[in-house]
Design a protein around this nucleic acid. Structure first.
Lengths: 346, 346
DNA sequence: ATGAAAGCGCTAACAT
DNA sequence: ATGTTAGCGCTTTCAT
C-alpha cells in the first residue's frame, strides 16, 4: 500500500509497442521521422501503461532541466507581509509556465541558507536563476556567479552601476520619485519630506536620488529613513513632524510606509491632503486603494516585471542552446517606466 | 563566455585524489569507513576542483530527490492578494530547509495547467507533494493520486470526511466559528449575520457549520455568501444590511471580508462595535490590526500549519525509505485549535 | 525509417 | 578499508 507503484520505463513501452527504445524516445519527444502507424502504436502503449518519462534520466543526458530557480533573499519577515513578492512571483510563474518550464522556489531565511542555495544551483538542478537581490552586501550574487548559472536579477543589483554585464529588470525608481515630488511641487507644496526605504537596497537609494533630483539642496532634516513597513512609516512620520512642524507634503518610498504616515497624520489631527499631501510608491492596490484617503502613488507594474525577468532568462537560455551568433539580439537589462496615479491624498 | 564551464565529475575528483570513484562517493556522502587521511585528500580535491555532485545522476540511481512540490491551485487571482498563502509557504519552507529538502512551487493558473502538474509529479522530480486551496470539484487530487506521489493536503479535502486515509493539516474551522459566534452572543447580540467564504471550499463550509452550531435555526437571510475578498465582504455586508436592518453583529468568514464589511458599516454611518459588532477569522495581522476599529478575530497559526504539513510529509517519506513497521507511529492528519483574539470590533 | 549500442554521472553490491 | 563493476532510464550517434 505504501509501495510506490513502479513506473513503466521506455523499455516497457518499447516492448509493448514492439519497437525499439529509440523509436519510443522519438515519438515521445515530438516524433520526427517515424511512420505514422508506428507512432500511433507507440502512443497507445504510452497511454495504456501510463508512461511518463523519468526526468532525472533525461536531464542526465540532455543537460537540460526545464526548470529555473527563483531565489528570494529574505532575512526579514517583511518580504512576506508584502504583496510585492507575490505579484512578481505570479508574473514569473505565468511566463515560465507558458514555456513549459518549472519554477523552483528557493527561500533563504538567513545566512546559513546561502551555502545551501549555492550548492543547489551548482548541483545542476536548474537551467537558470531569477534572483531578487535585496541588499547591498548580499553574498548571494557571488555564490551564483561561482555556480555558473545564467541569472537575471530583479531590481538593480547593488554592485552594478546599471551599465552593463549583469542582466536585470527594474522599474525607473529614480524617475518615478522625481515625478512624485514634482507633482507635489506643482500642487504648490514647499516643505516636502521624504520617508525613505532601507538604504541598503538600491530601490530605496534610487528613490531618494529622485527626490533629491527634484529638490536639490533640500533640508537634510526632511529626509528620514524608513524600512518599507507601515510601522517604519509611522516612526518616520513622527520624526518628520517633530523636526519640521511646517511640513506640507510627504513622499513615502512605498505605499506601505505611506499608509503608516497617513495614520500618524490622522492621529495628530492633520488633514490629508489639505494640511499635508502624501504620495506613495508602488500602487499596491490592496494598500493604496484602502487607505484614508486613497493614496496618490507612483505605479509600477510588478507582475509585468516578473514576467519580463522570466522572459529575459528564457531568451538567454535559448541562445545558449543554439549556437547563437554572439552579437545577435543579446538580451539586455530592462528598466520599466512608472506612472503617477492620482487619488485623493495629493 | 556564454559557455557554461564544464563541471568536474566524480571521476575527475577520483583521479585528482588518486582514489576510486567509490571512495570519493563515500566521502562526499557522509564518509563512513574511509581512512581519515584519504578522506582528507578527497576533500581537498573536491575543494580544488569545485566539485558539486550532479543531482540528476544521483537521483537516477537513488530514486530520491530531496525535493517536494508545493501545489497551489489558484484559479483566481485572489490567492495572491492574500497573505495566507505566503505565511503557509513560509512555514513549509522553514521545515523543508531544516531537512535539506528543496521546495518546488507549482502554481496552477487554470484548468490547462493541471495536466502539466500531473506530468511533473509523475515525472519523478519530487519525493512528495504538499497541496493547497482545493475546491470541491478540483481534478488535482485525482491526478495526484494517479501520479502515485505521497501527499499531504492543506485544509480538509472536500472529498474526505476527515475520518481517514487522506493526510491533511487543517485548523478547527468549525470550532473557531462557534467560538466567534458565542462571543457575540455573550456580548448580548441577538441578530447575528454571517458572511461566508466561497462554499466550494471546505474551510468556508466548516465555518458556516460552526455558525449554525452556535445559532441553530438562524434566519437564512442572515447568511450571505462571500468569497474571502474585501470586495465580496462589502457586497455581502450591503445585502445583509438591506435584508436585516436590525442586525447587531456580523461574523465574517475571514479577515479580508470583515475589512470590507467594516467599510460598508462606516459608509452607512453605523458604529462598530456599538451598533454592529464584527468578528473575523484568521487573525491576519496586516489586516486585522489595521482596520478601523481593529478586528476581533479567530486566530489560526498559519505558518505553523505550513510547518506541520511539511513535517508530516517528511515523516511519511522517511517511513517509506526505511522498511517501517506498518503499524508504527504512522503519521496522522492534524487539526489545530484556534483562539479568539479580542480587539475593538467586538 | 528503425534499431543497436554507447554513454550521461552517480551509487551500491560485491570483491578484494 | 578500498576498488571493480553493473546498472539507474534516457538520448543520440551510427549502422542498417
Amino acid at each position: 500500500m505504501t509501495e510506490t507503484a513502479p513506473r513503466p520505463t521506455l523499455e516497457a513501452v518499447a516492448a509493448r509497442a514492439g519497437v525499439s527504445r529509440a523509436t519510443v524516445s522519438r515519438v515521445v519527444n515530438g516524433a520526427h521521422g517515424v511512420r505514422a502507424s508506428l507512432a500511433e502504436r507507440v502512443r497507445r502503449a504510452v497511454e495504456e501503461l501510463g508512461y511518463v518519462p523519468n526526468q532525472a534520466a533525461r536531464s542526465l543526458v540532455t543537460r537540460r532541466h526545464d526548470a529555473v530557480a527563483v531565489v528570494v533573499a529574505e532575512p526579514e519577515t517583511r518580504v512576506f507581509a508584502d504583496p510585492f513578492f507575490a505579484l512578481q512571483l505570479r508574473g514569473i510563474s505565468k511566463e515560465l509556465t507558458a514555456h513549459d518550464c518549472q519554477l523552483v522556489l528557493l527561500l533563504t531565511e538567513g545566512r546559513d541558507d546561502h551555502a545551501r542555495v549555492g550548492r543547489y544551483l551548482a548541483g545542476g538542478h536548474v537551467d537558470g536563476a531569477l534572483v531578487f537581490s535585496l541588499h547591498l552586501d548580499d553574498p548571494l550574487p557571488g555564490l551564483i556567479r561561482s555556480a555558473g548559472v545564467p541569472t537575471v536579477f530583479g531590481g538593480r543589483p547593488g554592485w552594478s552601476d546599471g551599465t552593463g554585464d549583469v542582466l536585470h529588470v527594474d522599474c525607473d525608481n529614480r524617475g518615478g520619485a522625481r515625478a512624485a515630488v514634482r507633482h507635489l511641487l506643482a500642487l504648490g507644496r514647499r516643505r516636502i519630506g521624504h520617508i525613505t526605504g532601507p538604504l541598503d537596497q538600491t530601490s530605496a537609494v534610487d528613490r531618494l536620488d529622485g527626490f533629491r533630483d527634484a529638490l536639490p539642496g533640500a533640508d537634510p532634516d526632511l529626509v528620514v529613513e524608513g524600512d518599507f513597513t507601515p510601522a517604519g512609516g509611522e516612526r518616520a512620520m513622527r520624526a518628520l513632524l517633530d523636526r519640521c512642524p511646517g511640513l506640507d507634503a510627504v513622499f513615502a518610498a512605498n505605499d506601505l510606509s505611506a499608509s503608516g504616515a497617513l495614520r500618524v497624520l490622522r492621529e495628530r489631527g492633520l488633514r490629508v491632503p489639505e494640511d499635508v499631501a502624501v504620495v506613495g510608491f508602488d500602487d499596491m492596490l490592496p494598500v493604496a486603494e484602502q487607505t484614508h484617503p486613497p493614496l496618490t502613488t507612483v505605479r509600477q507594474d510588478i507582475e509585468h516585471m516578473g514576467r519580463l525577468m522570466a522572459r529575459l532568462l528564457l531568451r538567454r537560455l535559448a541562445r545558449e542552446q543554439t549556437g547563437q551568433d554572439p552579437q545577435d539580439a543579446a538580451p539586455r537589462s530592462v528598466v520599466l517606466p512608472t506612472t503617477l496615479v492620482r487619488r485623493a491624498s495629493a
